[in-house]
Write a protein that binds this DNA or RNA. Structure first.
Length: 466
RNA sequence: GGUCCGGUGGCAGAGUGGCUAUGCAGGGGACUGCAAAUCCCCGUACGUCGGUUCAAUUCCGGCCCGGACCUCCA
């Protein structure tokens, strides 16, 4: 079964056919670095991380580019408000972003270009657009001429007239057409700016992605991803810029957009103030649980964030890690050692169908059940390997099960491992003396501390944090 | 107004023209000194009204309800 992706350009699921099967190229819109990322910002990162992992399995070479927008009026505003220098804000926030995404198990992209390091490419692109009659300079600004592009609006399925009719902002007087948008704008001396043929200024929002994707992936590439809200205007304008500058029929062949994360059915957003930063959530749950939560819904569907949902994600991971936690059975003498585990095909198939992660997760659970039922030692070990491999495709189940169950949790017990082991030894002594009241008292005592004991058939007592 | 998504069991969330995932929660049983974990069994859900069909939750149409986008936004 080939990879199928839902393409926003055609509004249907299509078979993915790379331009160059030897080298797949993917671009995802990254963050504007002026504040910590919230869980909604993390959703595309995790979703497209699964895509990246899948593509890497399918093709010999994949280049994944995710930009860092480090020049933007929101950054300027943040600096003015706090007094913190712009460089400090952007470098600090970029670092935090990278740490947070790593904590969610997202692989770093192959290239993470910064807008400020691509000003020359942006200026070049703007010059090309002017040359070809798709842009014009006016009062220190350079604007893209929307009427110059016949196919403008194809991605968002908006036509120019509707846009003008529905516009929520006033039309700047220097625009020739109300739908025209800014490629370059002048900077006053107190804010960041770069010399350009149109005077000292800074880029508009959309041009940077056109410049960076061009430089790192070429004029036309395979996949472009981002949040649903970027379809218009951001991606529409990127397409207009790139296609018009290069004279190409498409910018990216497949456009993928993730749905929103909501909180009590309201979109999680900074302006509504109902957001949870990845950072604060990492203080109450493991990154892997947050990742599982994000993958528990299909990437295009809305996903409602609740503490209960997060707790269920953690419980589901407990269930998947449980069979991985039990020691491998002894292989019968003379038995062939289990072969290198294969990737579970049904998990791959689920992902090939437009990244159906909920279905893929259910297949992981089926695999866990198989392991729990398995009585054959060789089969048991082989299935465990498969579960790990399948989890790996989703960026899950890669840590040591002991670490998963025993890593100190924020707000958890203050008891150290040595103290826990000590209490377990005391309890086992009581059990041996058939003093079950004392044994149960210790069990209860540990339970109050969030420690669960499991007496194994082997006679060992294992503990884990609830 | 325009464009585009959805409405599935107590909750979350897949999927399918007939065999009704998966997890959590709940009930019963096995196992256990007690537990935990695990295993077995259980509750027969698909907004609404029509249509097509031998058969529709699944296809088509109307309606109702909810959501997103229409130059801040993942």
């Amino acid at each position: 079964m080939p990879l199928q992706v839902y393409n926003t350009l055609t509004r249907r699921k299509e078979t993915f056919e790379p331009i160059d099967p030897g080298h797949v190229r993917l671009y995802v819109c990254g963050p504007t670095v002026y504040d910590f990322a919230h869980l909604g910002n993390a959703r595309p990162v995790v979703a497209f991380d699964v895509l990246y992992r899948l593509l890497k399995r399918l093709y010999p070479r994949v280049t994944y580019v995710r930009n860092i927008t480090d020049v933007d009026d929101k950054i300027i505003d943040a600096s003015k408000a706090s007094g913190e220098p712009i460089d400090s804000i952007t470098s600090r926030t970029t670092r935090a972003y990278q740490q947070d995404m790593a904590a969610l198990g997202a692989l770093p992209p192959d290239v993470e270009p910064r807008a400020t390091e691509h000003i020359a490419e942006m200026i070049r692109l703007i010059e090309m657009l002017i040359q070809r009659g798709h842009a014009y300079a006016a009062e220190g600004h350079v604007l893209f001429s929307v009427p110059s592009m016949a196919e403008y609006g194809r991605l968002s399925r908006h036509n120019r007239e509707e846009l003008i009719a529905g516009a929520r902002i006033d039309v700047a007087p220097y625009k020739k057409d109300p739908a025209d948008f800014v490629l370059w704008k002048p900077s006053t001396p107190d804010i960041p700016g770069w010399p350009s043929p149109w005077g000292r200024g800074r880029p508009g929002w959309h041009i940077e992605c056109s410049a960076m994707s061009w430089k790192h992936l070429g004029e036309t590439f395979d996949l472009h991803g981002g949040g649903l809200d970027l379809i218009f205007p951001h991606h529409e304008n990127e397409i207009a810029q790139s296609r018009s500058a290069h004279g190409t029929p498409v910018m990216a062949r497949y456009w993928m957009h993730n749905g929103f994360l909501s909180v009590n059915s309201d979109k999680m957003s900074k302006s509504l103030g109902n957001f949870f930063t990845v950072r604060e959530l990492l203080a109450e749950a493991p990154g892997e649980a947050l990742r599982y939560f994000l993958l528990s819904g299909h990437y295009r569907a809305p996903l409602d964030f609740t503490r209960q949902g997060l707790a269920e994600a953690k419980a589901a991971l407990d269930r998947l890690y449980t069979p991985l936690w039990t020691p491998d059975p002894f292989l019968p003498a003379g038995a062939a050692p289990p072969a290198e585990a294969d990737i579970p095909a049904d998990v791959v198939d689920a992902l090939l169908d437009d990244l159906n992660t909920p279905l893929a997760l259910s297949r992981l659970h089926a695999l866990a059940s198989d392991i729990n039922r398995s009585r054959d030692p060789v089969e048991h070990v082989r299935l465990k390997g498969r579960l790990r491999k399948g989890g790996g495709l989703l960026g899950l189940l890669q840590q040591n099960a002991d670490a998963w169950f025993r890593a100190p949790s924020p707000g958890g017990t203050k008891l150290g491992e040595a103290e826990i082991e000590q209490k377990i030894a005391a309890r086992n002594a009581a059990r041996k003396a058939r003093n079950f009241a004392e044994a149960d008292r210790i069990r209860q005592e540990l339970f109050q501390e969030g420690i669960v004991l499991e007496d194994r058939p082997s006679g060992n007592t294992e503990w884990r944090r609830a």
